[in-house]
Every structure is written in C-alpha cells, then in structure tokens.
C-alpha cells in the first residue's frame, strides 16, 4: 500500500505571534517551528497502518520554504519512509487552493492508495487543503476523522460532528483528514532521529500558482480590559451574580 501524508511546519502553539513589518504577514524570527499537531496524528496513523499490515510505503510531503525540511525529518524520525518538499520562496504567500494544486501536481505523478492530512494547520486555520486535494483529484474524502479501520480495500472512519459521530465508509483511494483523538503520536526514538538526519529529501521547486484570496492586512485582536477580582471564595458569589446580571447583563 502506498500512503501519502501531507504535512506543514507551523509555529509552536505556545508562540507569541508578532506581526511582520509589512503588516500582512507574521514576523518569522524567534519562532519555534514544529510539525503541525494535526499532521502528527496523520503521520502516526500512516505508520500504524504500515506496522499492522506491512508492505506499505509512507511518504510525507510538504509545500513550504526550506525550513520545512525539519518538519519532514520529524515525520521520517517517527517512521515515514520517504519525504518530498515542494519548495517555495521564504516569503512566498500561498492560499489553500494553491497549496492543494501544488500537492496535486506531485500526487498525480506518483499515485497513492490513501492520502492523509491533518484536519487543519494551526497557523492559518483554513481547514481547506485536504478536501481541496480530494476534489481536484476527484477522490472521496472524509474530514475530521477520530477513528479509522481499513478492510477489504475500504476505509471506515468516524467523523465528529456537533453532538455526535458519523460512521462513514469509503472506497480507496481516498483523502482523510485527522482530528485529535485519532491516535497518540509517538515520540521519535533516538535511532529514528539519527536516521532521519541522513535521509535524502526529494526537493522540487514550486511553480507559481496564483492565489484566489489575498491577505490585505493583519492586526492583533482588541485586548480585553484588565479583569476585576470580585472577591475571594464562595462569599464573593452573590456579588458576581449581581455583576453578571446588572453590569454585564448576560443573565
């Protein structure tokens, strides 16, 4: 079986994001870059499938600048076999559709039985690339999967929706996007990390793709005014209820 996992390098979620001098993008200095957390679930799932059924090649791919190599190496250290970087300029702006098109250009040439993605990258929060890749390839897609079983050339996935879970069966090849809870991603072993360092990365240069959506400007959200400590312990509760009712008028 050939599995492709699409990954992105993103700032650590504890990073304080600073706006760049162009007021359109973020300041990329002093950022601890990590493999997108939702992509970790996708990588882990692919490796578990490989361990379970054998005879499987797991390829990871990323569209991004040179620094993305470290995210790919993290995935290889976890157990992925091959890595492809579709390289962009350091300051290139791509919207989700452009990323999906870049991925599709490679996928069309290599062909896979299963394509896994994280449900979203925790930087742009677009939640778009997975289903876009599926549509461009005319493949079925199940988003936000919290459970996956492969059997008789079919995939059965659990998809979380508001107040419930859908059980969806799909033929393969298919695109699936991982929700938290799908599995528990492993920490790469030292041996894996050492091997990943020597792994050659298949690097390709991205051909320009016109974005369909432009970021005009970015700003910080309005800061909330400093809070009011109503009091200490249970004695403060009546005053809090009074404030919620009369001042905030929310109850």
């Amino acid at each position: 079986m050939k599995i492709l996992v699409c990954v992105k390098q993103v700032p650590d979620t504890e990073t304080r994001i600073k706006i760049g001098s162009d007021k359109k993008s973020i300041d990329a200095t002093d950022i601890n870059w990590i493999l997108n957390p939702y992509d970790e679930y996708a990588v882990e799932e692919a490796i578990q499938i490989k361990e379970k059924q054998g005879d499987t090649i797991v390829t990871v791919i990323s569209v991004g600048p040179e620094r993305s190599v470290s995210a790919l190496r993290t995935a290889v250290a976890m157990g992925a076999d091959e890595a492809i970087l579709v390289k962009t300029d350091d300051d290139a702006y791509l919207d989700s559709l452009a990323v999906a098109k870049a991925l599709v250009s490679v996928i069309k040439e290599l062909e896979f039985d299963l394509i896994l993605c994280g449900k979203q990258a925790v930087d742009d929060d677009n939640l778009q690339v997975g289903p876009m890749v599926a549509e461009l390839l005319e493949l079925p897609c199940v988003t936000f999967i919290a459970d996956l079983k492969l059997e008789n050339g079919k995939a059965t996935a659990k998809r979380e929706i508001e107040g419930g879970t859908m059980v969806i069966e799909t033929s393969l090849p298919a695109v699936l996007t991982a929700e938290k809870g799908l599995n528990e991603p492993r920490y790469p072993a030292l041996r894996g990390i050492m091997m990943a360092k020597r792994k050659p990365i298949d690097e390709r240069q991205l051909q320009y793709i016109e974005p369909k959506i432009d970021v005009v400007s970015v700003e910080y959200p309005p800061t909330r005014k400093g809070g009011k400590i109503v009091g200490e312990g249970a004695e403060a509760v009546p005053e809090l209820v009074k404030l919620l009712k009369e001042e905030a008028k929310v109850i």
């Binding site: 700032p11 929060d125 369909k212 959506i213 432009d214 910080y220 959200p221």
Partner: peptide
C-alpha cells in the same frame, strides 16, 4: 471583504477575493 482569525484568534486578518 472578510475578517477572519488565524493562529486561533492570536491574529485577525482582513482578506479579499482575487476571484
């Protein structure tokens, strides 16, 4: 024109369609 959040609300972005 649309306003949306990025980085889980750490940043607000004004975006426009290029299509």
């Amino acid at each position: 024109l649309a306003k949306r959040t990025m980085y889980a609300n750490k940043i607000l972005a004004d975006v426009q369609f290029n299509s």
